[in-house]
Amino acid sequence: MAAGPDRDRSDRRTAVRRVLVTALVINLAMSLLKLTVGLISGSLAVIADAMHSATDALSSLTGLITNRLSDPRPDRDHPYGHHKYEGIGALGIAGFILFTALEILLRAGERLLDGLPAIRVTSNELVLLLIALGFNLLLAAYEHDQGRRLNSALLKADAQHAASDVWTTVVILIGMSGALFFDVNWLDVALAIPMALLLIRVCWSVLKRTLPWLVDHIAIAPESIHAEAMQVAGVLNCHDIASRGVLGQQVFIDMHMIVEADDLRTAHRITELVEDRLDQRFGPVRCTIHLEPKDYVEQEITYSGTHG
């Protein structure tokens, strides 16, 4: 029975790695393409976008490393598994997004100080950027879809990073089109600032989703766990309920329980039924249940921190 979930999780990690390898190859290619366009046109904004794509590639590489480390199977040194390495990888991606936003603001400031120098733009550069935009769109959609299918926080964060690259490329295209057709060299700078603020918002979104997991924020409302456990025949009371982890990926539940049983074998069987029910409802779940005598009365079902 235990080998099944472990194999499923191992297969999920392998699938996540395949997606990240695809993302790494595409991001490296797009970074080189944009850098070439930036050097030819002399556009600092395009060079900054190339750097953004380079951080995309770096985030995909970081994702591959953390995915290797995030083996869900426990070992002697990590009895609760290695899931949080994936969360650390998501935080690294958030850092790359923030770096990109600050880089765009810095480049915009430099152009303003330089008096908005003209850039050399032809239709060839626009076509190359449109090709890059198409690949960025496909990659963002692919990673987002696979992140949902595999329930991977790492892929979801990387998809958001890829999506931010789509928006920055759109901004660059508008700015370069303005420079080519209307001789408006300030347009890309004017659009770069709100786009940088958007990237900062994306960074905050990744942090808001990942930090609760890393600091062991509640995963499931204790009232919901209580309601499920009380549906099992033989359970008289459960209280001091705590949970952590990521719902649908891996949740750890601790609780105290009173059961209708006079022998250890029956009591153990009831706790197994509770664990199975919780796993079916919230799984995968790893549950620790502390049995107490029948005459113990506790009305509070939530974790109070006062019981050891």
Rank of each mutant, 00 (worst) to 15 (best):
A157Q: 01
E86A: 09
F99R: 10
R111Q: 05
E260D: 15
H161M: 14
I270Y: 02
D75L: 05
R12F: 03
R76W: 07
Q231A: 10
L139N: 04
V46M: 11
L112Q: 11
L33T: 12
I174Q: 04
R265H: 12
R111Y: 00
G38R: 03
T288N: 09
D49N: 05
Q299P: 01
I26V: 15
P117A: 00
F182K: 12
L24H: 06
F135S: 09
L150M: 11
A140Q: 06
S224R: 11
I218Q: 08
V46L: 10
I225E: 01
L58P: 01
K34P: 06
L197M: 01
L273W: 09
G4K: 12
D6C: 01
S243I: 00
F252W: 02
P284S: 00
L128H: 03
P117M: 01
P79T: 03
L197F: 08
I26C: 10
A3E: 15
G109M: 04
G42Q: 05
I119T: 08
Q250F: 04
E110T: 10
A229Y: 02
M176S: 09
V274S: 02
W213T: 03
T306L: 14
L35W: 14
A159V: 01
K208I: 00
S41C: 09
V19A: 15
M195S: 13
D11N: 06
L130C: 09
D71E: 15
G147H: 04
L191Y: 03
L129N: 07
S59E: 05
K84T: 02
N136Y: 03
R68K: 11
T168K: 07
H226P: 01
Y296L: 14
S41H: 04
I88R: 02
R148H: 15
A94T: 03
D263Y: 03
E86H: 03
W204D: 01
A57I: 02
R265Y: 09
A196V: 00
S60I: 02
P293H: 11
A94F: 04
A45N: 09
Y303S: 12
L129S: 12
L150D: 12
D11G: 00
G175Y: 04
D165A: 13
P74T: 05
H256W: 00
L291V: 10
L180D: 07
L116N: 08
A221D: 14
L44C: 06
G147M: 06
P79K: 09
N27R: 08
F135I: 07
A57L: 05
T22K: 13
A261T: 07
S123E: 15
F181R: 07
L211K: 00
I40R: 04
F135T: 07
L130E: 13
C238F: 08
C203R: 05
G178V: 06
S41R: 05
V297G: 02
T306K: 13
G234S: 02
